[in-house]
Design a protein around this nucleic acid. Structure first.
Length: 718
DNA sequence: CTCACCCCCGTTTTT
DNA sequence: CGGGGGTGAG
């Protein structure tokens, strides 16, 4: 492969980054839409084909599985060969790989399990209960947060001073209990994956030397999102001979609340010398107005590394800013505009609605249903986090490893089989006293239980033994199929009214069929699959967006782009959120979030806010977001809902915006009052077409909103 | 053990 | 407002 194939369609700066001098480290400050993934993949291709770097000598780190998969695919296409063996993945999956390979040196057994946030929560909760720590004074979520935060900062329980204050003392108490429990049960949570693999390298010089020598090139994506341990991990692997190539954008750091350290990106410049910084400032995504408005907004932040994006794409349309009366008005505005875009030929999937937090989606969902526009809402639970899926996986885990106590706890009485809390407590105590697993304890304790409990318990034990024996020689998907039936899970979920749970279990079987196990990683097929479900909980086989309007939080929109973006809820106390507004560094992060949201848009951007919003069971008045004032008016097209100057006069039935859709016919006009023989009185919301085929959308007082053909409807215009 | 009711609380969540 | 979890009766 020759150089031109790699640099062909790159601009000067991208090309400079890709073919960067092999003898230095690099920090690529890549603005939104400047082609950062492309630079990263082409850089790797360049190293392999032009510098004869072996695939094994490259370590590439991303933050999401999606990004890793995408990069792997792109690179494989570019090189025209598979790159399976390459160390390319998320921090967590790479850390996991290290721990699996060197589990003895990490004080683990080969069967250690990954604990997800839910499992972690359950354990913390139980430990607090058992040790009478008052949940009302120390909410479980907060304690869990405390523990993870410490670990993300590379702080172990023994590093904390118990006498610092009462709060620390109590949190530390749980922290220690939790750590002991995890060590005892071979459990690793997400933060532990990172800190433990970091300690593994730190405490084993020979290992460290090996990996330092092996990884001649280390490439990191989204560097602004690294936390303290991740930074230290990278720094540890750097020995001065190998080269670091980092891509990031300080303006898009939106995970500070989770431990990400935006300053890592500046620390990089002093810790990894010699280093050169290259700025990618040409944006290939958005129109001039969108980009300039975003640039103007972000200049209100302090301590930026500084970079102003430009485009040669022309100004495009102005950004609409809509002042709605209420959240309903806002939703109607947004959805009617989407309707209009679709009528003009856009696909629903070209449109996205972005909001600050998930609860805001509902009102838009209702409006989309009303307009009969297909949509998809991202967020909430991931596939492998559904209860029914976790139940099934717990059976799988228990069958693979009878010592898996977390799995045992979950399914011992599910589906219910008469094993109550009392019995489970006895099993726990027995297991603890005899240093054995819950499953072994259950076997041994049977004889000293009341008959009913003993019978119930032995039927469970037999069930597990039976599935284990029956499926011993079966492959993964056959195992899962068998266990779903034998355990009674399928039966149990057959009663599910909506039926989606049973569907999900079937989908699980499909996913297990598609799972292709890599032999090289020392795990059994089942173990490999279980690890995958923890590390990539999306369960996406081939997530197709189809023809749906996309609704999601701004956080989950990072890295995506859409022709049309509706950024909603632009109100003080909502965005920026109430808890951020008085803390400058938090407000800055909110502003970056707003910047991320705006720069998702390619052609059309609409910002909106409601003067009055119904939230948490009460109506509140709000001011427009400060961010709106930080965007110069010249980029904006300000629109207000008319119909009377005061809110009291406002009639929800007339929500529709005369001023926004200024079309009218001789006869029909938006907002007009009509009467229908059957449906009664209503208001015209919208209409399309001409003459006899004109379709009119009417919101009727009694029967809701309908589209009617004007020539058949016999409407009486009042 | 299970169901029903009541009370509480309410950002963002790549792993 | 509404979902989740905790509690107490059957």
């Amino acid at each position: 492969m020759n150089l031109s194939e790699i640099t062909n369609d790159l601009n000067d700066k991208q090309c400079q980054s890709v073919t960067f001098n092999n003898e230095k480290n690099a920090l690529i400050l890549a603005g939104a839409g400047s082609g950062k993934t492309r630079v990263l993949t082409h850089r790797i291709a360049y190293l392999i084909t032009q510098k004869d770097i072996r695939i094994d000598a490259i370590l590439a780190v991303t933050f999401t599985n999606k990004a890793a998969t995408e990069m792997r695919e792109r690179l494989s296409t570019l090189l025209r060969r598979p790159i399976q063996s390459m160390w390319m993945g998320t921090f967590h999956s790479l850390a996991h790989r290290l721990l699996r390979t060197h589990y003895e040196k990490s004080k683990l057994t080969s069967g250690f399990q990954i604990l997800d946030a839910q499992d972690q929560f359950r354990i913390v909760k139980r430990l607090m209960k058992e040790n009478s720590i008052d949940e009302s004074k120390f909410p479980i979520k907060k304690v869990q947060w405390f523990i993870n935060n410490q670990k993300n900062e590379d702080i172990r329980a023994q590093d904390i001073d118990p006498d610092y204050n009462y709060f620390i003392k109590k949190n530390l108490e749980v922290f220690e209990l939790y750590e002991a429990y995890c060590q005892e049960n071979d459990l690793i949570d997400f933060a532990e994956l990172l800190i433990r693999s970091y300690e593994l390298l730190k405490n084993n010089t020979d290992l460290l030397n090996h990996y330092q020598a092996r990884f001649e090139h280390i490439l990191v994506d989204e560097f602004q999102d690294t936390n303290t341990v991740q930074y230290k991990w990278i720094k540890l692997l750097f020995n001065g001979h190998n080269k670091i190539f980092c891509v990031g954008d300080d303006d898009q750091s939106i995970y500070g609340w989770r431990g990400a350290k935006i300053e890592n990106i500046t620390k990089l410049c002093t810790d990894f010398t010699p280093i050169e910084t290259i700025r990618l400032k040409q944006n290939y995504r958005s129109t001039g107005n969108i980009l300039n408005a975003s640039n103007a907004l972000i200049t209100h932040n302090v301590n930026r590394m500084g970079k102003s994006l430009w485009t040669d794409a022309g100004n495009g349309e102005l950004i609409d800013v809509y002042e709605a009366r209420t959240e309903t008005d806002e939703a109607n505005y947004v959805i009617s505009n989407i309707q209009k875009l679709i009528t003009n030929g856009a696909s629903p999937s070209d449109c996205s609605i972005l909001y600050r937090f998930n609860a805001q989606s509902r009102i838009f969902e209702e409006a989309l249903i009303k307009y009969n526009i297909p949509y998809i809402i991202y967020g909430g639970l991931k596939f492998f986090e559904y209860t029914e899926i976790k139940d099934a996986l717990s059976y799988l885990r228990l069958i693979e490893n009878s010592a898996d106590n977390v799995a045992f706890e979950r399914v011992v009485n599910f589906p219910t089989r008469g094993i109550g809390n009392v019995t489970v407590k006895k099993i726990r105590t027995f297991a603890q006293d005899n240093h054995t697993s819950l499953f072994q304890a259950a076997i041994q304790i049977s004889s000293i239980l009341p008959t009913r409990a003993a019978n119930a318990l032995s039927s469970f034990i037999n069930l597990i033994k039976q599935i284990t024996d029956d499926t011993k020689h079966l492959n993964l998907s056959e195992k899962v199929t068998n266990l779903l039936n034998t355990s009674g899970l399928i039966m149990h979920y057959s009663n599910d009214k909506i039926g989606s749970k049973k569907e999900n279990l079937k989908k699980l079987i499909t996913i297990t069929k598609q799972y292709n196990h890599e032999q090289d990683n020392k795990m059994s097929e089942v173990m490999g699959f279980i690890s995958l479900t923890s590390l990539d909980s999306s369960g996406n086989t081939n997530a197709s967006i189809n023809q749906n309007v996309q609704l999601m939080t701004i956080h989950s929109a990072k890295g995506l782009e859409f022709p049309c973006v509706f950024l909603v809820g632009m109100e003080e106390d909502l965005f920026p959120s109430r808890q951020s507004k008085n803390e400058p560094h938090l407000t800055d992060e909110e502003r970056r979030l707003c910047y991320v949201g705006m720069t998702r848009a390619m052609k059309k951007l609409s910002l909106s806010y409601a003067i009055k919003r119904f939230l948490y069971g009460q109506s509140l008045y709000a001011y427009p977001s400060r961010f709106l004032n930080e965007i110069p008016s010249k980029y904006l097209n300000k629109i207000k809902a008319k119909f009377g100057a005061t809110i009291q006069n406002y009639n929800d039935d007339n929500t529709f915006n005369k001023n926004i859709t200024p079309k009218s016919d001789d006869q029909i006009s938006i907002g007009a009052l009509v009467k229908h023989a059957k449906f009664g009185l209503g208001t015209v919301l919208n209409f399309e077409g001409q003459g006899d085929s004109t379709r009119v959308q009417i919101k009727f007082k009694q029967v809701g909103t309908k589209w009617l053909i004007n020539s058949y409807a016999n409407l009486e215009f009042i």
